[in-house]
Design a binder for these strands. Structure first.
Lengths: 109, 109
DNA sequence: ATTACTTATCGTAATATTGCGATATAAGAT
DNA sequence: ATCTTATATCGCAATATTACGATAAGTAAT
């Protein structure tokens, strides 16, 4: 096998899983933190900042873009990446709802 | 290759990535939702609720347990699973800090 | 047009994940 | 002791991910 049975699950379950999966990698977390902290959007300074090969960074950026979490704009030779606010908010809501549905029953098993 | 270069990243980046990775699967999201909604902790009713084989569910539970997100207590023949509140809170904080560090600069590139 | 620079893509190797049948383990009931 | 039930583990096949060197594709400057 090796393929997730998405048919079985709800749209929201799949959506949240996809968004989380895109973020669930230390390199992609680091990339997002860089993009956020360099208020204006940075480009391929990422290759220098993190210690990964250019091809690897480019691949991670592609995954974040595919998930809709970031957006890339061509600016001459460089490409400027920034957060896609819509997806960011959507993820915050989905994850917040999910995590918030749990209240510690203090003492269970 | 195929192995993540964890040495390069901070402890918190790796920690958050590991926790998110454990959750970033629709089946595991569904499992957690079941555990939460069946206030007292449920057991292998999960196999019936979700449409996955017993071996598959057991494997997903193992991953959630390894990540410290749930906890299993043996109760006779059955095993009772419930959320591990410490990890849950930790994840909420890490993710909240991460997501909250972004403020829409409205208009970037 | 040639050069320099930035980013994307291709191909590949190593490893991880997903799912499941089969089987093992363990506890309760008969 | 044997049977039943519940869960875990093993082994396997299919697929996905991670990382990178090599190379392509695009733009800017000379």
């Amino acid at each position: 096998m090796g393929l997730t049975k998405t048919e079985i699950f709800s749209k929201e379950q799949n959506e949240l899983a996809l968004l989380l999966k895109a973020i669930a990698h230390p390199a992609r977390i680091a990339i997002l933190q860089q993009i956020i902290s360099a208020k204006a959007c940075i480009c391929g300074d990422l290759v220098e900042e993190l210690g990964l090969a250019q091809a690897t960074i480019s691949q991670h950026l592609k995954e974040l873009k595919n998930a809709g979490i970031i957006q890339g704009t061509i600016e001459g030779v460089k490409v400027c990446y920034c957060i896609e606010p819509g997806t960011w908010n959507r993820l915050q809501k989905l994850f917040g709802d999910f995590m918030g549905s749990y209240v510690d029953p203090n003492g269970c098993c």
